[in-house]
């Protein structure tokens, strides 16, 4: 039996019919057709599926789609403001490009959402706070240093939030 779920994804109200045993990640990627959130381990170890649910970063693979009825979700597709003139990237996205914080790119959507959640709460994080915030996001390419630099270089800057 499918359950009707009403949720706001990236500012847009969505009504979705969802089987109860479908993860939020599968719902986002299939029913909602937002494939930016990645499926890495699918058991909460890698963080590639990180989205922001009601203001908090979570692993969307460890939440049921039916649980988000009445909630608000931001995915990587909603990070930048696509309605702004010229559709600029979010400062975090610009920064990770400039600093070489992405190589294969698979972990990047999750890293960016974890970093956004950090900067929303702590606009000027220390190096240690940045590393603590992305401890649940595995990157096998960059060795993390460039990712941390990407986050720290824009922290507290205009429009970072």
């Amino acid at each position: 039996m499918k359950h009707m779920v009403s949720t706001i994804i990236n500012g847009e109200r969505r009504e979705l019919a969802i089987k109860p045993y479908r993860s939020l990640l599968d719902v986002l990627r299939n029913e909602a057709e937002l494939t930016g959130s990645k499926k890495g381990c699918d058991v909460g170890d890698c963080g590639a599926c990180t989205v922001i649910l009601d203001g908090k970063p979570i692993n969307s693979c460890l939440v049921l789609g039916v649980e988000v009825d009445g909630s608000e979700i931001t995915t990587i597709e909603g990070l930048a403001d696509h309605t702004a003139p010229g559709a600029p990237l979010h400062p975090l996205q610009e920064s990770i490009l400039q600093h070489g914080g992405a190589q294969c790119g698979f972990c990047t959507p999750g890293i960016l959402m974890a970093a956004k959640a950090l900067l929303d709460e702590t606009p000027r994080p220390t190096d240690e706070e940045a590393r603590f915030a992305i401890a649940g996001n595995l990157c096998r390419c960059t060795g993390y240093t460039k990712i941390v630099e990407s986050i720290l270089s824009i922290s507290g800057s205009e429009g970072a939030l």
Binding site: G44, G47, T50, L53, K56, P57, I58, N59, L62, V63, A114, A117, F132, A133, A135, G136, N137
Partner: peptide
């Protein structure tokens, strides 16, 4: 776990 896990 991680922040993502601890939030749930």
């Amino acid at each position: 776990g991680s922040i993502q896990v601890r939030n749930r």
